[in-house]
């Protein structure tokens, strides 16, 4: 286990390892997304109160769940890069930020579109929605902050601090539907006890959540690989790798 973690910090090893992972993960992710979307759109029964508009759940909830989980990944990588000064952790943090931003934006946009036929409005300043908007700004803040600094070592440190401070927001998002009970409904899926959703709707939803986790891992890896190729363009291992292909 420790040798694995140690190896992860080595760019040549990581580049080779992630290359194999990406090769498998890309078709798996696209397959899961297509099967999950088709299942949710065409096969699952309509909701008895919301009709067919509820089918947005199959992208809205997975995008939101993974956007939140992705923030932990980014903040954890930021902490590792702050404490142990591991370059790889810094690359991971920056690769996760734009992916998280896109997923948060997708959750917000699909939520707004879902809100129109269900609540009669595109937008309300509900606690859950507002805290998700803050999450979007945190992700975008990390991206923008890195670009703002000339000195990239200082930039990485500032981004790590920002992402760590922002973790305060994550439990607030989770709990917002219970603390401020307004328009947004509480969670339907529970780890303990009965879920408030029928299994014919639950299975495609779980499949889509798995698909979005794969998507997150895949895009972060792709971003990291693109970054590594550029950062190590003069390194021996990459020069040899390019010559071989």
């Amino acid at each position: 286990m420790w040798t694995f973690i140690h190896k992860m910090g080595s760019p040549p090893w990581f580049f080779r390892f992630s290359g194999v992972v990406v090769q498998w993960l890309l078709p798996i992710t696209i397959g899961l997304l297509l099967v999950g979307a088709a299942w949710g759109l065409l096969v699952a029964p309509p909701d008895f109160r919301q009709g067919n508009s509820y089918r947005i759940i199959y992208i809205h909830v997975p995008a939101a769940v993974v956007a939140l989980a992705g923030y932990y990944v980014m903040a954890f990588a930021g902490a590792v890069s702050l404490i142990w000064r591991i370059k790889m952790a810094d690359v991971t943090m920056r690769a996760a930020a734009p992916v998280g931003a896109v997923l948060t934006a997708v959750a917000l946009i699909t939520g707004a579109i879902w809100g129109k036929p269900t609540w009669g409005t595109w937008w309300v300043w509900d606690a859950r929605i507002t805290s998700m908007l803050i999450l979007l700004f945190l992700y975008l803040g990390v991206v923008a902050l890195f670009e703002a600094y000339e000195n990239k070592t200082a930039a990485a440190r500032a981004c790590a601090v920002l992402s760590l401070v922002g973790t305060v927001n994550i439990p607030i998002i989770y709990k917002s539907v219970d603390w401020w009970y307004s328009l947004h409904q509480p969670a339907s899926i529970k780890f303990t006890g009965e879920s408030a959703i029928d299994s014919s709707m639950l299975y495609p939803l779980l499949l889509m959540i798995a698909a979005f986790y794969c998507l997150f891992a895949l895009t972060v890896l792709l971003n990291m690989r693109a970054e590594l190729v550029w950062n190590h363009r003069e390194a021996n291992w990459l020069q040899q790798l390019v010559r071989k292909v």
Binding site: S53, R55, I113
Partner: peptide, 12 residues
């Protein structure tokens, strides 16, 4: 989709 097609397909 019983009138909800626009919203569903737009979000997808």
């Amino acid at each position: 989709m019983d009138g909800h097609g626009f919203y569903v397909w737009l979000s997808y």
